[in-house]
């Protein structure tokens, strides 16, 4: 079940003038805590194989 391309607004993908640094910073801001959480969970999950 999906809409046809002709009736779908075009994806806004081209001609970005946003500085790539800003995009990278925004992703870092959310990526760093998420990576911390993932690492801590992996350490915890490893107990399943070592505990």
């Amino acid at each position: 079940m999906s809409t046809t391309d002709s009736t779908r607004p075009a994806p806004i993908t081209s001609g970005s003038t946003t500085p790539p640094v800003l995009v990278a910073l925004a992703w870092l801001l959310v990526g760093v805590p998420l990576a911390y959480g993932l690492w801590q969970t992996l350490v915890r999950a490893s107990a399943l194989f070592t505990g």
Partner: peptide, 20 residues
Amino acid sequence: VAGPGYSRWLIPPAALAVHL
């Protein structure tokens, strides 16, 4: 409303900041 050229790849981190 985003100005011309605003990267749509800034929207997922904005959403993630809330959901995280």
